[in-house]
């Protein structure tokens, strides 16, 4: 089997990359695109640290073959901030002390962002459900849940264009 060219959009930028068969999206993002903010925690879909958005759907990039990203719109943690202004989730994670070692943080924020993108005012249960595929070994989750709810409240106060 031979490598082939794959095109996708990464954080709004067009990419055309030579991809070997079987290469995982997480490795392509990290090693070929330099998007190191997507973490590789388990390589088996168990921890959620590698969560990215593929066409606005949160996916575990360690379980996605890079070839299948052809034509897709991919968003990683590097694309969550706009014009160097942190997203409300990122601000809330800082304010609520929702990070410790930080290794799960990017995946947590991407999973939470997918939730807020489709449900801007979630109940606590919806937050817990949205984060249920993401493992954090430091915080005990409560500050993370609080941060997502705080971000939702923050976004509700902003004009829609800024969100």
């Amino acid at each position: 089997m031979r490598s082939s060219f794959v095109s996708f959009t990464l954080n709004g930028e067009e990419k055309e990359l030579l991809i070997a068969p079987g290469q995982r999206l997480v490795d392509v993002l990290r090693e070929q695109c330099g998007a190191m903010g997507t973490r590789n925690g388990c390589g088996q879909g168990g921890c959620g640290a590698c969560t990215v958005h593929v066409d606005a759907v949160p996916m575990l990039s360690c379980l996605v073959l890079a070839e299948l990203a052809e034509g897709c719109d991919i968003l990683t943690i590097e694309g969550a901030a706009r014009d160097r202004t942190l997203h409300a989730l990122q601000e809330a994670f800082v304010a609520e002390a929702a990070t410790q070692c930080g290794f799960c943080t990017a995946g947590m924020i991407m999973a939470a962002k997918a939730l807020l993108d489709r449900d801007p005012a979630p109940q606590r249960e919806a937050v817990v459900e949205a984060l249920s595929g993401n493992v954090c070994r430091c915080t005990g989750y409560e500050p993370i849940i609080a941060a997502v709810l705080a971000a939702a409240a923050m976004l509700a106060r902003l004009p829609a264009a800024a969100a």
Partner: peptide
């Protein structure tokens, strides 16, 4: 280190 963590 929080801002670096949340921005990846």
């Amino acid at each position: 280190d929080a801002r670096a963590h949340v921005s990846g």
